[in-house]
Amino acid sequence: MEIYVILKQTFDTEEKIIIEDDNVSEDGVQYVINPYDEYAVEEAIQKREEVGGNVYVIAVGPERTSEALRTALAMGADEAVLISDERIGSDENIISKVLASYLSSQKVDLILGGYFSVDNGAGQVAIRLAQLLDIPHVGSITKLNINDDKATADRDAEGDLEQIEVILPAVFTAQQGLNELRYPSLPGIMKAKRKPLQQLTIDDLDIEESELTPKTARTALSLPPQKEAGQILKGETIEQVKVLVEKLRQDAKVL
């Protein structure tokens, strides 16, 4: 089974956001595999262990993204592809077209991605990709089973659980709870250094440059108003509770 994971490199979730010259500052920032995509990598490896085949990790992004791909290789993925090119605009529409252009020339049985990225967080790329490849998808899954040419998945729909069967090839996006992550072992990290990591530009793909024009543009970036620490209530617990109820009824119309 040929299993592809589409993954994005994101800021570590511990990072505070600093704006400099109308952009999010990348100074000294730690990068990680998008946490949801980590579950996708893990699931891909588990499925390969179950049914055999290969796991390919693929990312579109700047050069630094190769670190995230190496981490995925150290977790156990077999091969990596980085599509990196200044001409690729940063827009979900473009990223999905670039991925589709690459994947449509590969033999694909299964594609796994994340529910959304924890930085830009649009939640579009994986589902757009499924549509562009004209294959079904199941979003936000917490369980996946492969039965020959079909797969069944549990989808978390705002707390409701949907059990869905699709014909492969198909795209799945990982929700938390899909699996327990493994962390790269030292031998895994050593081995990863020798695994293939191919770097491509759009010249290697069958895609028109006109497809690479963003359909959306950012016009401003700002930090939310800083929340000020309020008051710690004092006195006997029951007094504090009474004061709190009073305050909440003043502040919030809904009570």
Partner: peptide
């Protein structure tokens, strides 16, 4: 919101 609300962006369609 981006970064889950650690920042906000304004966007327009082209």
């Amino acid at each position: 919101p981006i970064y889950a609300g650690k920042a906000f962006e304004k966007k327009v369609f082209q």
